[in-house]
């Protein structure tokens, strides 16, 4: 479904940093590396996190085709590693029939997120906020699972 599923889960990143770099006894090889990652926090303007919300990511060069998808964690957080840097990344967050689109402009070392201002009013007018929490070098890891013959891991 997704032509470039290069999402690297932060779970793997943490595991990669904590685990020794030598191969496991089951012939699994771990190579640790660092990558520029975007970490988002999705929540309603009430402060309630969008826990386990669907996230769909669109890359700058193919804005109509999903680049990757996942779900926020219990705190409404989601991390992904873009495979290109420059341009506007769009992130759609949906939950229970409602959602929002956030846009993140990446230019070199600079990242800014275009988020809605908070509209006063009834709950249905409240904005789904997507805040850029981090844009920087995070540890990640590439798993080579030889026994299954897979060249890399997916989140």
């Amino acid at each position: 479904m997704f032509p470039r599923p290069r999402l690297a889960g932060i779970t793997f990143a943490i595991a990669g940093l904590l685990a020794p770099s030598a191969a496991f006894s089951h012939a699994a090889l771990i190579e640790a590396e660092t990558a520029q990652a975007i970490r988002l926090h999705a929540y309603y303007d009430t402060g309630t996190p969008m826990a386990d919300a669907q996230v769909i990511i669109y890359a700058p060069d193919r804005p109509a085709v999903p680049w990757g998808q996942g779900n926020t964690d219990s705190e409404g957080r989601f991390t992904f590693i873009p495979d290109t840097v420059e341009g506007r990344w769009s992130v759609q967050v949906r939950q229970a029939g409602h959602g929002a689109m956030a846009h993140i402009e990446l230019h070199g070392e600079t990242a800014t997120v275009l988020a809605p201002t908070v509209a006063a009013g009834s709950w249905v007018q409240r904005a789904v906020m997507v805040a850029l929490v981090a844009w920087g070098a995070l540890g990640t890891a590439l798993f080579v699972l030889r026994r299954k013959g897979r060249p890399d891991a997916s989140a």
């Binding site: 689109m101 846009h103 275009l114 988020a115 809605p116 201002t117 908070v118 509209a119 904005a127």
Partner: peptide
Amino acid sequence: DPPFMADS
């Protein structure tokens, strides 16, 4: 552009 965010 920038995208309208339905906030007004």
